[in-house]
Design a protein around this nucleic acid. Structure first.
Length: 580
DNA sequence: GCCGTTTTCGGCCCGACTGTTTTCAGTCG
């Protein structure tokens, strides 16, 4: 049973308890456990085997018992009892925006409504307005929310949201009455997908800025428009929230709207212990009888953290995954930045399925300030991608040698390495013989077929591949495509151990659809001493810019420059290639 | 249900917004 599956059970227990009217703090405990499990990286089963379940943050005696029960028997009795109490279809109603557990319980208990369909029918017939707290307006809003829910709200890729957010920021910055602008929310934290987009601004004329923003042609709909807040939607339903605050609250508001919620809760609990309270306007002293006293911070984010005795914490770390403890102990990582990257080690040319020549890719890499790049065209079996025969690999090597010659002759300090992205075949063998692999500079292996095999088969293939001494790196280790394709049945904890054992690097593939490894496993790999590479897998010069998303993912995985192979100089990288 | 730089009991982040109410409950982030 995977961590995600166990977390899902705890999330469902929390949801059912909420509908059941349980104490909210009890509900929060279950949610907290689910959050914790999802950000673990390591398999819960292994932690259970060591008898260390209660070391997981938020897991106490009772929830530890439920986790072990789940792992031992496949079910949790308390969960089954809750399920028996309510129709299964009840939970779906919670997915409707603006419809929470109290309302679900109300319509179920009073009108016997058990599903989204029945809810829609009742709203259309005007039967909901009989209920306490409901009116015509709420029925109307509910019908709109149901329609939106039916359109299937997928989270938006970081790579799709960020450019649009930056464009909005630019438009705001161009105004004279706007003082500061920043992206906030999950987009600022660099999550791989975002639910909605948050932008924060300070201004001498907040209402005027809101007016301007609400009128932008980018939006297909303005949902709410007030003096300090605008909510609007792009054509694809992605929601944007703009908030305007006073300049003296910019730091507090930025901290507040950046989240994550879990991080903010931890931060405020910390403030409480110091007789302080934090809200979006600032940090305030708490006086006798809960009276709010003097404001001690708020203009800058640094000030907010300083007020509770902490150094500033980079947004990518603000996920309640131990960053506050690390900050307190002065052990925050010095996170990698885009400037640290000195080469890109996976990209394709027109020799296989890339769009341009090797020389053009090299030029594009130089323009990005790199010292080197590695061309990794596909191997022979990947017919759809124009995989290279061994003879073509040789010919490509000659072209690269010639190009390096030419660069040297022109006095250009840039190096093109010759690599290959080799398929791991169904039986675990590699797509080229060892003599072909020995002749290239860099071997990155990948699974491109046989995705539906079970874990045992997948791991057998990976194990065999990693045992090959020519192998340097595993490309996109899970094969997932966000929102599109699940990962194949890879046991990442085991793969990470194998990578450590055989001195093979793992890739963060920077393509926005992949971001694979993800943040959580990237951190686990680092903890186990595995080398990481951040590569774009570019098939076109423009794709090289995806590097920023790979770096963001690495930052979310607590990586420093020293943890990432391609922050090294060309010379050091070449040494690394000969490490085995 | 969890947790401990006052605590093994009694707390548990904080405010905005909405639609419904005449003071508030529910939802959201």
């Amino acid at each position: 049973m995977t961590n995600a599956e166990i977390a899902a059970v705890f999330r469902e227990i929390a949801a059912l308890l909420e509908i059941d009217g349980a104490d909210t703090f009890r509900v929060r405990s279950y949610q907290r456990v689910a959050d914790s499990l999802e950000s673990l990286g390591e398999n819960v089963a292994d932690i259970y085997a060591r008898g260390e379940l209660q070391k997981i943050p938020g897991v106490g005696k009772s929830t530890a018992k439920k986790i072990s029960e789940l792992l031992d028997t496949g079910v949790v009795a308390a969960h089954q009892e809750l399920r028996a109490k309510f129709p299964e279809t009840l939970l779906e109603m919670l997915s409707i925006s603006g419809f929470g557990p109290r309302k679900v319980a109300l319509v179920y208990n009073e009108l016997g409504i058990k599903s989204v369909e029945e809810l829609e029918e009742a709203a259309e017939e005007g039967r909901l307005r009989e209920l306490q707290g409901f009116g015509a307006k709420s029925e109307e809003n509910l019908l709109r929310s149901i329609a939106l829910y039916r359109q299937g709200q997928k989270r938006t890729l970081l790579g799709s949201a960020l450019p649009r957010a930056q464009e909005l920021v630019k438009l705001l910055q161009a105004r004279d009455d706007v003082l500061q602008v920043s992206i906030a929310g999950s987009l600022r934290r660099g999550r791989e997908t975002i639910g909605d987009m948050d932008i924060l601004a300070t201004s001498t004329d907040a209402a005027g800025v809101c007016e301007f923003f609400a009128g932008l042609p980018q939006f297909s709909e303005v949902i709410a428009h007030g003096e300090t807040k605008v909510s609007a939607r792009f054509e694809d339903n992605l929601q944007v929230d703009l908030r305007a605050v006073e300049p003296e609250s910019f730091g507090a508001a930025l901290q507040y709207f950046t989240g994550s919620q879990a991080h903010n809760i931890e931060l405020r609990e910390r403030a409480q212990k110091r007789d302080l309270t934090i809200n979006e306007y600032g940090v305030f002293r708490v006086m006798e009888q809960d009276e709010r006293g003097e404001k001690v911070a708020g203009e800058t984010e640094e000030g907010v953290y300083e007020a509770v005795g902490l150094p500033w914490i980079p947004p990518e770390l603000r996920e309640a995954r131990g960053e506050i403890e690390a900050a307190e102990a002065g052990r925050l990582p010095e996170l990698i930045t885009l400037d640290d990257i000195r080469g890109d080690c996976q990209m394709h040319s027109e020799w296989s399925d890339g769009h341009t020549s090797i020389a053009e890719m090299a030029t594009a890499c130089r323009e990005r300030g790199y010292e080197y790049c590695v061309i990794t065209d596909h191997s022979v079996s990947l017919g759809v991608a124009g995989g290279l025969t061994p003879e073509q690999v040789q010919a490509e090597a000659a072209e690269i040698a010639e190009l390096n010659e030419k660069l040297r002759a022109e006095g250009i300090d840039f190096r093109v390495f010759h690599g290959t992205e080799v398929d791991i075949l169904a039986d675990g063998s590699l797509d080229y013989d060892d003599d072909v692999l020995a002749a290239v500079d860099f071997v990155i292996v990948a699974i491109h077929q046989g995705f539906s095999r079970d874990e045992q088969r997948i791991m057998k293939r990976l194990r065999a591949a990693l045992e090959n001494p020519h192998v340097d790196c595993v490309a996109h280790p899970t094969g997932r495509l966000i929102n599109t394709r699940e990962a194949y049945a890879v046991n990442l904890a085991e793969l990470i151990d194998l990578a450590a054992e055989h001195d093979v690097a793992l890739e963060i593939n920077a393509f926005p659809e992949r971001l694979d490894l993800d943040d959580v496993h990237c951190r686990l790999a680092r903890d186990r001493g595995v080398d990481i590479m951040i590569n774009t897998d570019a098939h076109d010069p423009a794709h090289l810019d995806y590097m920023q998303f790979g770096v963001t993912t690495a930052r979310r995985g607590w990586l420093e420059a020293k943890d990432v192979v391609n922050t090294r100089s060309a010379g050091e990288f070449e040494q690394w290639l000969h490490r085995k």
